[in-house]
Design a protein around this nucleic acid. Structure first.
Lengths: 251, 251
DNA sequence: GCAAAAGTGTTACCCATACACCCATGT
DNA sequence: ACATGGGTGTATGGGTAACACTTTTGC
């Protein structure tokens, strides 16, 4: 429903009085992930005010009256990172967090998004935050509000989507090697994969990646130069690329 | 973030003025699915007022100041169906719809949920609606607002989750036969499945179903009585039960 | 030459598919 | 008897896992 309830719930007189209720603030929170130095990293901002002053928090902000949550998320991301046109950006709704006490000041309903970036640019400490920085995903750093949970949910969702979608290319620059793509899976899943099998699997999925004709790149200085690939048109992976060895995981 | 933005965005004076902005209404919408007479059906309510008077719409209502969206969804469902303790109910957040113009009257952000019911009880035309009824999912019946899209998203999500989760048991009564479980898959996916293979697959997944010791049921009057099963403790399906034949589906 | 990273080949095994067949019940 | 739905068995093929091996670069 939308505003149907007001009409039928004995609030007929108040049905168009927008201030009849305690207002809800609607915000967006962004779990922005990237891979740097072979590790999963998160974009965080340092809070300057109470509550949670000095704590790290997910970037985000208010949804403005004339924009959707998706638009707000893109805008906030641009403001925080200073990049309005990030190539390869993947932005996707995660879920909405609406526990009444999640912000001590007022009722805040937050639509959380997951964003993935390749080759992470250093964030400008934007208008919104005292400090903004990439920090390793695995760290003993309690975040403000319920942001630890949001971040964990985002990680879980991304890990799951790698299995049955072509999402991994969103972590890679426009042209990438299969080794880099494999590193994405290994970093997010925390599991080593067999290179020959990974290679076959990816190449056997039509539209996942397509070769760049003349391309080759030296990856770590040493080793054979690797062929370059671009992301293809496919978005789904059939059959899926399943995470190895999760037996004894009935629940 | 939550209400961080107000502090740092040159609104310091207004940071705790809850009425500084055009308020958002926050609602929940419910895509309640069930299987009746071998067909997928949806719980819909008929609108009595403009806009969309006479149209069918998804049940739903306002999130109250002291409850989460999840709580509101459960409450609204109980109000609409008249059943506060539905056995086997599965309620899950779908996504949030926040386009600024989705309700012509005011700014309404709606958190949509998918709910699955076994053996659908006839809904009471509750406090909220002129009429409430189960209607077939496949029908030429434009819904109010953006509810067609919400319903389509819910169907797609449920279909996908059948592949890699034990969700199908949520469509079944507490004790069910494997034939009934298979009907769930076939009805939601719209594809016939091979019975022997389906059977093996389900029984080979530990924790998906567990046999009811003495149980047997005559299914359609005719035929051999079928063994009864209960839902197990598992929630995930590894390996997944993939939908057949979706080749040529690169996007 | 050696280490490191890319890339190819091969084999065994698992599992899904497809289909044939038997069992129990109502009419 | 026969139709209907439950349940079992089995052969075949595709895909994955595991691992050996070759190629190309830098040091």
């Amino acid at each position: 429903m939308t505003a149907k309830g007001v009409v039928n719930m004995a609030f007929d007189k108040a049905s168009y009085d927008k201030y009849a209720y305690e207002p809800f603030a609607v915000t967006v929170d962004l779990a922005v992930l990237t891979i740097r130095d072979g590790a999963l990293q998160v974009l965080l901002v340092e809070r300057g005010q109470e509550p949670y002053a000095g704590h790290w928090a997910l970037p985000g902000g208010f949804v403005e009256p004339d924009e959707s949550a998706e638009t707000a998320a893109g805008r906030e991301l641009a403001e925080e990172t200073g990049l309005s046109d990030v190539t390869g950006l993947h932005l996707e709704q995660l879920r909405t967090y609406s526990e009444p006490d999640r912000d001590p000041r007022m009722r805040v309903v937050s639509v959380a998004f997951t964003a993935l970036l390749p080759d992470a640019p250093e964030p400008h400490a934007g208008s919104d935050a005292a400090r903004a920085s990439w920090l390793p995903y695995h760290a003993d750093r309690p975040l403000a509000f319920d942001h630890d949970r949001i971040l964990a949910d985002a990680h879980e969702r991304v890990g799951a989507k790698l299995e049955y979608s072509c999402l991994a290319t969103a972590f890679c620059p426009p042209e990438f090697t299969l080794g880099e793509l494999q590193q994405v899976y290994e970093t997010v899943w925390g599991t080593p994969l067999d290179r020959p099998n990974f290679r076959r699997k990816v190449l056997a999925t039509p539209g996942f990646v397509e070769p760049v004709p003349g391309g080759a790149r030296l990856t770590g200085g040493r080793g054979k130069p690797a062929a370059l690939y671009r992301a293809g048109q496919a978005t789904a992976l059939h059959p899926p690329l399943l995470r190895p060895s999760r037996e004894g995981r009935p629940a």
